[in-house]
């Protein structure tokens, strides 16, 4: 445990284990629901009559007919961005502000560790921990799928969905992380992050139903994670670029400000 990265992973080991197990269970639950949701013909009438605007809340019910699109629309498209985003924000907030609030940051900064290195290794811990939880999703899906009727998911499709989920978590997490490192304030990091994630969720959920919200839909990070489209057409480079760009900008701003500011 001789680096900030290893120390941070060690400090957060229970958080990582808890959320990973949670993701395993969450994914397993969604997979095991599939036979109940997927009843040939049962949803056809509902799909035909359902208003387009309703899709934002319940997903595209037409996608329930196959397992991969079911998983994309019901797990990756609606529920996961919110749950995983919140998890990433809680993690990032802790990584960026807990040590400073407890007074431990000075203890670390009194050592020959540059602020850039400290910040980058903490961010790397964010990337690794979110990555592990995403692997948990895969474990949940692949341990439940063999015992669930009709639940077959190509591994490549899962990898695409998992990578984009990871990228979305990193983007949310990095925004919260950057606000925490810039301000040292848990309160401000929470406020900004909640605004970003709830804002994204509202925009993505209600934009199909409310005309004027539609103009702002691209401001939502969730917009760049169209899970059903990923299953059907693959990952769009633009979406990767936007999520990576947001992450990179937030990280760079955090480095520039944290290198200069006073710590408590």
């Amino acid at each position: 445990m001789n680096s900030v990265l290893l120390k941070t992973l060690y400090d957060r080991r229970w958080f990582m284990l808890g959320w990973t197990l949670g993701f395993v269970g969450f994914a397993a639950l969604m997979v095991s629901f599939y036979p109940a949701m997927h009843q040939e013909g049962a949803l056809d009438a509902l799909v035909e009559n359902m208003p387009k605007a309703f899709e934002g809340l319940v997903g595209n019910l037409a996608s329930l007919k196959s397992f991969d699109t079911y998983l994309a629309s019901q797990l990756f498209d609606i529920r996961l961005p919110l749950v995983a985003g919140i998890m990433a924000i809680i993690l990032a907030q802790g990584l960026s502000t807990h040590e400073e609030e407890r007074g431990e940051l000075r203890t670390i900064l009194a050592l020959p560790i540059s602020r850039t290195k400290l910040l980058f290794e903490k961010w790397l811990a964010l990337v690794i921990i979110t990555g592990v939880t995403v692997i948990g999703l895969g474990v949940g899906i692949y341990i439940t799928a063999p015992v669930t009727t009709g639940a077959e998911l190509e591994f490549l499709t899962f990898i695409k969905l998992a990578l984009m989920t990871w990228l979305l978590m990193i983007a949310y997490g990095t925004i919260a992380f950057a606000v925490g490192m810039i301000s040292g304030s848990k309160g401000l990091a929470t406020l900004v992050s909640i605004f970003v994630i709830i804002g994204s969720f509202i925009l993505s959920t209600f934009a199909p139903a409310v005309d004027w919200l539609g103009h702002y839909e691209k401001l939502s990070l969730i917009y760049y994670f169209p899970a059903v489209d990923i299953v059907e057409y693959g990952i769009a480079k633009t979406n990767v670029a936007v999520l990576s760009g947001v992450t990179l900008v937030a990280l760079l701003v955090a480095i520039v400000v944290f290198r200069r500011r006073d710590v408590r």
Binding site: M1, K7, Y10, D11, R102, G103, E104, R106, T107, I108, L109, A110, L111, P112, I113, S114, R115, R259, R260, R261, D262, V263
Partner: peptide, 26 residues
């Protein structure tokens, strides 16, 4: 010495404070 460059001198400095908070998980 500035916040951005102080770590270079820290290779030659030891520091302890009465109210120092050490990493409690370690």
């Amino acid at each position: 010495i500035s916040p951005a460059t102080a770590h270079v001198s820290h290779r030659r400095i030891g520091y302890a404070a009465g109210d120092m908070e050490l990493p409690k998980h370690m």
